[in-house]
Design a binder for these strands. Structure first.
Lengths: 141, 141
DNA sequence: ATCAATGCAAAAACTTTGCACTGAT
DNA sequence: ATCAGTGCAAAGTTTTTGCATTGAT
C-alpha cells in the first residue's frame, strides 16, 4: 500500500517518492529506466523533479526491496516494482518488449547446482534474448 | 589459432590485437574488464596501448565472436574468450570469483519456455550471485 | 601507396555527489 | 526546530568518437 511502503522503508513521505512509486505502479511498462520515470515526471508535472532525485529515490527503493534493479544488455539500469514473486525475463531484441516468466524446474536446478559447488545462492538473473514472433496473442508488458 | 582468428575476422594482424588476444588466452583470470586487460598491457610493455584501443579491439573481437561480453552486476563489462562451449556463471559477491557451469536441463527448459511464448531464442544469460564457502576444493575461475 | 588501425584527448552516456535551500515531522 | 530530502550543477565512471599519425599489406 503505497505510502506505507515508503514509511516502512524508514523514508519520509515526500512528493517525489510518492510520485515515483505511483509511476512504477501504474505505468503500462513494468520495466523502466531512471530516464523513463524522469520523462513521465516532466510530462505530467507542475513542479519539476530532478533526475538526480529519481536516481536517489530508485536506489533507496531498491535498498528497501520495494524495487528491483536489472542490468540487461542495454547498459542502462532498469527498475521494476518488487511484487515478491520472483521471475525471470525474456527481452525482445527488436522491440524491447519484456515478458516475465517463472519456471520451478529451472529454479530447482539452480539450487542444486549451487549446492554442488558449495555456493550460497543469494540471487540470480536469467534473461532470454531473442525475438517475439509477429501477431502476439498473449501477454503485455 | 591466435593470428588466424584475427585474420578470419577480417581484421589486420597488429600488435595491439595479438597482445590482447594472448592476454585473454593466457591470463589466469578468464573473465576480464577492459581495464584489467589494459593494466596488464601497461605492466608487461614497451610501447603503450591506449585504453580506447583495448575497448575497440574487444568490441571487434566480440563482433567476430572471438570474445563474449558479459554485463554482470558490477556495471563494468566483462570479457571472456569464446570457446564455443556455452556456459553460465556463478559470481561470488565477496571475492569476485567466477565459476562457469552448464546444465542441459536448464538449457532444455529455456528452449521450451521460449517456444511456448512464440519467442525465437537467440541468446541467454544466467548468472547466479552468492558466496562460495571457505576452503574451496575444486575448480578455478 | 592505400586504407585500416592507433594514440590521444575530447565527448558521450549514465550515475553519483556536494552543497545550500526546502520541507516533513 | 530539526534533520532528512531536494534541486542544481559539478564530478565520477565507463565507454565511444574525431582526428591526425602510424602501420600492415
Amino acid at each position: 500500500m503505497n505510502k506505507n511502503d515508503i514509511k516502512n522503508a524508514g523514508l519520509k513521505i515526500t512528493l517525489p517518492r510518492t510520485k515515483i512509486l505511483k509511476i512504477l505502479e501504474t505505468s503500462e511498462k513494468r520495466h523502466m529506466t531512471a530516464e523513463d520515470v524522469y520523462r513521465i515526471l516532466l510530462a505530467d508535472d507542475e513542479g519539476a523533479i530532478a533526475l538526480a532525485t529519481v536516481y536517489r529515490v530508485l536506489t533507496q527503493f531498491e535498498a528497501a526491496d520495494l524495487v528491483i534493479r536489472h542490468n540487461f544488455e542495454s547498459g542502462q539500469a532498469v527498475f521494476e516494482l518488487n511484487n515478491n514473486e520472483h521471475h525471470d525475463h525474456m527481452v525482445c531484441m527488436r522491440t524491447g518488449k519484456i515478458v516475465e516468466f517463472h519456471d520451478e524446474i529451472i529454479e530447482q536446478r539452480q539450487r542444486e547446482i549451487a549446492k554442488k559447488h558449495g555456493f550460497k545462492l543469494v540471487d540470480h538473473a536469467l534473461t532470454l534474448y531473442g525475438e517475439f514472433e509477429e501477431s502476439p496473442k498473449m501477454n503485455k508488458q
